[in-house]
Design a protein around this nucleic acid. Structure first.
Length: 427
RNA sequence: GGAGGCGUAUCGAAGCGGUCAUAACGAGGCGGUCUUGAAAACCGUUUGGCGGCAACGCCACAGGGGUUCGAAUCCCUUCGCCUCCGCCA
């Protein structure tokens, strides 16, 4: 949620900023509703003040032995009018809230306008690997090395599901352990959140109400729940409706969870194997900061995510996303894109974003400033650190050898019993 | 799944239709007096949202709804916590 006052003060300036995202938003109706709201509040509150005053007098008059039945009758009429106006006010408030909840975040000023085509690589690590043999793609490698059972995965859970088997499971877990240990070393607190979250969590994160269909809903009605699409959705809700002290910040967390996404209708040739599945593993970095420290936090988290890929020795590029390609809740996003040789393409393994106070406003998360004791919205930031489902294929492909084996990066070996290479299984 | 109890400020807790909503009482926090310093004691202070230029007003006793001239208090409902029974891959 953005600051309503920005719209009140200069709706055109806000509109300009959204145009960078490729969204033309008309605030005319909103501004009318806002005026209507203020006028209704004025009316309702005047009536309530009257009611409060008279209601306090009634017991005194009674005590004095006076007949209050006429006054009570008057107040009943007044009460009915209050109820009517209150209902109207609630409806207006609901419309305003719905409009605001659907507004995306304002992009940072330094972002380029437009969509994906304007994303800008700002850093490259390593080079495209060169092979003296015909390289295999990750699906072939995963099968020949006995790492993934795609067929039985589909049998168990349908398209977009797979089973990590034997050494594949160990490699997957080694990646996660490597990520986890790296983050612990940086002083981040390890969190294992619930996978089933209440609707409110999605609202704060900014996924709802717009993207309700992108997640798996598992219950309806007031107690409705959904499977989390990323641990961010859980971590961003830790301090919902809470007030922290400035000295409590920054709070640095990372969480592991399986992530669940419908990914409806998104299958393409370049998304075969485990590139885009309904369930994948991800470690997510998350920070709550004060407003003035969030840029610093962002740089730290980007560099941590980059460090993980560099530690694995894999070729990647870091891209600064154009305004239109940042997810709705985010003011800025950098993507780490790992190279997948078989597709000659760079695929996202981490998305690092600064939501600024957008999520904090939605979840009412504030901190008390040391200096003047005033309340301020926190800033929230997240960065994948990392999602395994693209690292795993990139690792297999980039590290494959002529004999069909795959070299395990040094940093993972201690998690895999010291094994240096994955060898093809004999049939 | 069944039965019951509970949810009030930073914490504990009183109030159970109007004189109890910044909210009794106790503790904690902050400021001060006293003290060489600390403790103790004493005094003061200590929620947030909304509307308004302001004066000021409105709202909030887990959330939502209802009854009433008036609700923390009565009723319905959702959520959460606790106790007992049942079930438990």
């Amino acid at each position: 949620m953005i600051d309503v006052n920005l719209i009140r003060q200069d709706a055109n300036a806000v509109r300009e900023r959204y145009l960078k995202r490729g969204k033309d938003i008309d605030f005319t109706d909103f501004l009318k509703l806002d005026e209507q709201r203020k006028s209704l509040i004025g009316q309702v509150e005047t009536m309530k003040a009257e009611r409060n005053k008279v209601s306090a007098e009634i017991p005194k008059l009674k005590k004095a032995g006076q007949d209050v039945s006429a006054t009570i009758a008057e107040m009943k009429t007044l009460g009915d009018r209050i109820a009517e106006q209150d209902t109207e006010l609630n409806e207006v408030n609901e419309k305003i809230r719905d409009f605001l909840l659907r507004l995306p975040n304002l992009p940072d000023d330094d972002l380029l306008a437009g969509g994906k085509e304007n994303n800008k690589p700002i850093k490259t690590f390593g080079v495209k690997p060169h092979f003296d043999f015909t390289p295999k793609d990750h699906v072939e490698l995963a099968k020949s090395l006995g790492l993934i059972d795609y067929e039985r995965g589909a049998k168990l859970a349908g398209n977009g599901s797979w089973i990590y088997t034997g050494m594949g499971a160990r490699l997957e877990w080694a990646l996660l352990n490597y990520f986890i240990d790296s983050h612990i070393a940086k002083g981040y607190t390890f969190m294992l959140p619930p996978y089933m979250l209440s609707y409110e969590c999605g609202l704060t994160a900014g996924q709802f109400p717009k993207f309700e269909d992108d997640v798996y809903q598992i219950a309806n009605g007031e107690g409705r729940k959904f499977m989390l699409p990323t641990a961010e959705t859980a971590l961003v809700n830790l301090y919902r409706d809470e007030i922290l002290n400035e000295s409590d910040l920054p709070k640095k967390f990372f969480g592991y969870s399986a992530c669940f996404r419908r990914e409806a209708g998104s299958y393409r040739a370049e998304e075969r194997g485990m590139i885009r599945g309904h369930q994948f593993n991800k470690v997510e970095l998350f920070q709550y900061t004060t407003a003035d420290k969030s840029d610093e936090a962002f740089e730290e988290m980007v560099s941590m995510a980059c460090g993980l890929v560099e530690g694995l020795g894999l070729h990647y590029q870091l891209s600064k996303l154009a305004a239109g390609d940042c997810s709705d809740s985010m003011a800025r996003t950098y993507d780490i894109e790992i190279y997948i040789p078989s597709m000659n393409i760079y695929k996202e393994v981490s998305s690092a974003s600064n939501a600024r106070d957008y999520q904090a406003r939605r979840g009412n998360m504030r901190y008390r400033k040391d200096a003047d004791k005033k309340l301020e919205f926190m800033h929230t930031l997240n960065a994948s650190g990392l999602a395994t489902s693209r690292v795993f294929p990139a690792l297999l492909e980039q590290n494959q050898n002529a004999d069909g084996s795959v070299t395990i990066p040094e940093v993972l070996r201690k998690y895999m019993g010291g094994i240096e290479k994955l060898e093809p299984i004999k049939k």
